[in-house]
Structures are given as structure tokens and as C-alpha cells.
Design a protein around this nucleic acid. Structure first.
Lengths: 240, 240
DNA sequence: CACTCTAATATGCAAGTTACATATATCTTG
DNA sequence: CAAGATATATGTAACTTGCATATTAGAGTG
């Protein structure tokens, strides 16, 4: 901005400032389906509805640091793949006051997902149902086994839909998919994760060849154990 | 965020809030190269350096509306392709106070680019030099014919680099490229824009076939005039 | 110790896509 | 009317992807 405009900001009382929060989409794959971790709101507004974990951005805190803090404080997760998603700034998105939210996408391995549930019992794992195919975009719905279909507070349904769309879009050309898998994994596990996120089934030999050709996979020589069939080799993610 | 945390926000004086601005990357293609419109800072900090046009987000203004207002007030442009880019929240990105900036990418046709220069003489058109290929990402530099290499104020060099990377990434699979072209254009003009943004030369028959197959191009039957050679057909963009 | 079952891994081939070279068409200019 | 320049069209090889099929390596069973 230029200097003239800046005078607006110099006197903190001259112009009202919005509050800024970060909201996290804690996303993982459970039972072959994309899932998200939610918190129940116990006060107005949207009391009783489910919301994404979030928190205010401190005056001396970067956006990324705020997202990491929320990840730690609200989900008990010390480290995860974190990526800024989009900023939501509708004027009435919170009925109490003006709040601009910077949404982040956090990708959790199944282990991290379960660990968060252990550490923070208030968290609810909910399956994400995506009614559109490809990258068409649009609303998604959220269901939990006990509570059935859930209504999300604020514009969090929009945020979640944005997260799903972003993840689908990046899955093919980037290496984000590995953030949903443990350190060692089989090619079948990798394909399962892709199929869960994309919502389609993929051709096995083609998928296998395509990903091996990308140079992201390092064979370990080790194999999974305890299968009633030929054990698959374990791979590790490595940047090319 | 949850209710406990929310108490921080209820009392406007209890916790300091950041200011929120929007900054616009006004991007076009001039002389076969990507170009950006900049404003010179006439006060501290970064006095004399060049900055992206921006402005504070009003308390009753959405982020998109703020971006449109800046587009109108700072560049005299009534309408352009606008897309939210990324939010920049480093604590010391402005030495005076905490400011979080939501960056927007605005794509201008050559006509809109020139019109902005007419309407707002303070704007400087500067060519963007991208020293990396593909989608590697990294810093870009900015040069103007009169002033040579320019130093951008604040973290605006980062914002600009993010804009270039985003545009390169989207050009192939989306229809953003048409936002840089007038209503009627030839296939050669379309290819020139792609080559300018991507920083590579493209194979003509392949480019032509690939784009015609996407179903985005409607032949008008009209042809360009005044050429010293076979005139090219004029096309119009249409969603498939 | 065969034999069966299951899924991993490997391979072959057709179909589709893309890059490149080359040919033809259409305009202006001298 | 030939030359020059660029648009447009097409043919072919290289590459990528989808699908079918074969082979391999384990566990379980009689």
C-alpha cells in the first residue's frame, strides 16, 4: 500500500481492524476414505455444531507459526505437513465480529491421526464425502459413525471443500501424497491413498510405473510381514 | 477457533490486532515479456523503492472487494481477472507495525495495461525477468527501461515471485491465459502469451492442436488485417 | 510335500498424445 | 507474376497411458 493510505493504520483507534485467525483442516485417510478432525462448539454462535480447530494469530506470530501452534495445542501434533490454503474474508462469516481466517491444510498419517485422537479426546474423526468427481469442485459433506451427517460452523464447509479440491489438484503432480503415508509403505498403500483422495479407482500397473518413473520412491529391500500372500516391498519417499 | 480462545478477540483492547491489507500484482504481457505495474514509495520505509499497489481492508469490506477497490483506485481499472494468491504474514514484513497482506493476482490485457498507465501516470511498467525454468520457483527480478533493475519494497519481491510461479503453474491446465488477451485474438498471439509467461518457445503445430482440442476456442471466421502475409483467423474464448 | 489361494510384480500391446518435419495456402510487395 | 512471409494442415516417430495377461512369492491345507 502507499503512504497516504497508511495513515489509516498508524492510529490504532482511527480505524477498526479485523481479527485474524488460522483454521486448520486436519486431513487424513481412514478406512480408505478421506477424513477430517473436528471440534464441537460448546458456545454460541453455532453452538453444538462442528468446527475446524483454529486460533487467533498473535501480534508477534507469523501465520505459519500460528498454524503450528494450533496444530500443537488443539490436536497435540508436534509435526505435520502444513500448507497455507486460502484466506476467507466474508464480512459476516462470524456474526460477532469481523474475523479474517487464513486456512491451512494439514496432512496427517494414519498414525498421527490416531495419536491426535488419543491426545485430544474432544476431537471427532469424520469421513468426508465428495459428491463431485475430478476437479469439478463444490460442496462436500461430513459424516461420523455416531453422529451421522454433521453441519459445520461458520464457513468451515467452504474451507473444507477448498482443502479437498486443493489436495486433489496437487496429488498427481506433486509429492504431497507421501505426507499421508508412514515412513515405510507399499505401493498398494500408496495407491490406496491416491484412490481415497481422488475418489476413483486407478489401474494398478499404470499407477505403479508412473510413480516409480517419477523418482520419488526408494526401494528398501525389506518387505511387509504377516500377509497371507506374497508380501509387498516397502518403499521410502525420497526427493529426486 | 473455539470459544475459550475467542475471548481474546472480544475485548478489542485486550489483544493487539494486526492490520490487514491487500496487495495486487498487476500482471500483463508487454513486448513479449511479462510485466508488472509498480508505484514508487515517496515516504519511509523503503522510500524511493517500488511497491505493489495495495490498501487496507475495510472493516466492512470483503477481501475480494478490497482487491477490486485497489484495482479501481490505484490502477484505474474497472474490471480484470482477479485471483487471491497467498497471504503473507511475516512479523517484520513492515517495520512500522504488524501487517498481514493478502496478495492478489490481477491479469491485464495489453489494452488494460496501457489504459492503467494512462489513467494513473504514477504507475511504472516494469519487465519481469525469471531466472528459473519450469516451475522450479525462486526469486525474480524487475527491470524498467529508464530505471534499470528495481528493488521492491517490503516482501513484494516474494509476492511477485509467488505470482509468477502460480501463473506458470496454471497456464497449461486452466484458461487463465485468455485473461491476458483481448476479446479477439489469433493463435499466434495466444502462443506468444504462453511463451512469455512460460519463458520457453513452444512448437507451433503442437500448441495449436492442443489448444484447439481443449474446446476453449471459437473461430470467428474473421481474419486479422494489414499483414504483409497470410492473415490469421481471429478466435474468441468460450468456456466448453 | 504338492496343491490352492491371493496379491505382488513384470511384461506385452493397443490406443492415445505430443514433438517435429514438411507440405500447402493466402496474403503483400516489388 | 514471382518472391517472401506466415498461417494452416498433415504425416510420422517417440513417448505415455490403459488394459490384459503372465509370472512370482508367500500362507494355508490336505
Amino acid at each position: 500500500m502507499d503512504e497516504t493510505d497508511f495513515l489509516r493504520g498508524y492510529d490504532p483507534n482511527a480505524f477498526q481492524r479485523p481479527s485474524v485467525t488460522v483454521d486448520l483442516v486436519l486431513l487424513g485417510v481412514r478406512n480408505g476414505k478421506p477424513a477430517v478432525l473436528l471440534l464441537k462448539r460448546d458456545q454460541q454462535p453455532y453452538q453444538g455444531q462442528w468446527a475446524l480447530p483454529g486460533g487467533f494469530v498473535g501480534i508477534d506470530e507469523t501465520l505459519d507459526a500460528a498454524a503450528e501452534r494450533v496444530l500443537r495445542q488443539k490436536a497435540g501434533i508436534g509435526h505435520a505437513y502444513l500448507e497455507q490454503l486460502y484466506s476467507f474474508g466474508a464480512v459476516d462469516r462470524d456474526p460477532r465480529m469481523r474475523i479474517i481466517s487464513v486456512a491451512y491444510l494439514a496432512l496427517l498419517t494414519e498414525t498421527a491421526f490416531d495419536a491426535a485422537l488419543q491426545a485430544m479426546p474432544a476431537l471427532l474423526p469424520a469421513a468426508i464425502q465428495v459428491p463431485w468427481s475430478g476437479e469439478a469442485g463444490g460442496p462436500v459433506s461430513v459424516v461420523s459413525p455416531e453422529n451421522g451427517a454433521l453441519t459445520l460452523a461458520f464457513d468451515h464447509a467452504d474451507i473444507l471443500a477448498t482443502a479437498v479440491l486443493r489436495l486433489r489438484g496437487k496429488l498427481d503432480y506433486s509429492d504431497v501424497g507421501f505426507a499421508l503415508l508412514p515412513e515405510l509403505f507399499t505401493l498398494r498403500q500408496l495407491q490406496d491413498v491416491h484412490e481415497a483422495i481422488l475418489g476413483t479407482s486407478l489401474n494398478k500397473p499404470a499407477f505403479r510405473r508412473r510413480l516409480l518413473d517419477k523418482g520419488w520412491l526408494a526401494a528398501t529391500g525389506a518387505h511387509e510381514a504377516g500377509t497371507a500372500y506374497r508380501p509387498a516391498e516397502l518403499y521410502r519417499f525420497q526427493r529426486p
